[in-house]
């Protein structure tokens, strides 16, 4: 056991951890930030996607110890109070979620990708999300949500 401190959504969380503890377990079980989900055990589904130092990572594939000193953002860090982030708003407006289990991962992945490519084509959006699985939506409304979000952000909506 070793004491570490992780910075998540701008807040420090300190805990004694085992070296094998996954980042996703730290986020969910130690910080109680349960918006980051777990959908597989093979790094395939993307439900656990968070942003680490500006890049999207599957938090089931990162050890908590590897995240020390990094800046982590989870789905809980997006909305400003009641006001949704433009990507969240776009998912709402375009019915981009059904059960909502894949949604946090999808949104975090889109957050990263739209910073990289603010004006993507539909095909580019599809490719950027191909590591995030959704069993409910058939993806069409997710893709449309991300395209709409790109537009909102280009038009000056707040994005972090």
């Amino acid at each position: 056991m070793k004491k570490v401190s992780l910075r998540i959504n701008g807040k420090e969380y300190a805990s004694e951890i085992e070296p094998r503890l996954l980042l996703v377990s730290f986020i969910r079980d130690i910080c109680g930030l349960t918006g980051t989900h777990i959908g597989c055990d093979t790094s395939n589904c993307g439900a656990c996607t968070v942003i680490m130092d500006g890049k999207s990572v599957k938090s089931c594939t990162v050890l908590a110890a590897q995240a020390v000193g990094k800046e982590i953002t989870t789905i809980e860090g997006l909305a400003k109070g009641e006001e949704l982030h433009p990507i969240q708003r776009a998912f709402w407006e375009h019915h981009g979620l059904q059960c909502g289990y894949c949604t946090p991962g999808m949104i975090m992945q889109a957050l990263w990708y739209l910073k990289l490519n603010p004006s993507p084509t539909e095909q580019e959006v599809r490719e950027s999300l191909s590591g995030n699985l959704c069993r409910c939506t058939g993806y069409q409304n997710i893709v449309d949500s991300v395209l709409a979000a790109a537009k909102y952000i280009r038009n000056g909506d707040q994005a972090r």
Binding site: R28, I75, Q88, T103, P104
Partner: peptide, 21 residues
């Protein structure tokens, strides 16, 4: 009508089985 259940799910405040403490 846009969904009334979405806000929680979009902001990571859903309560799934794994989230029960």
């Amino acid at each position: 009508l846009k969904r009334v259940e979405d806000h929680r799910l979009l902001t990571g405040q859903g309560k799934f089985l794994g989230d029960i403490r």
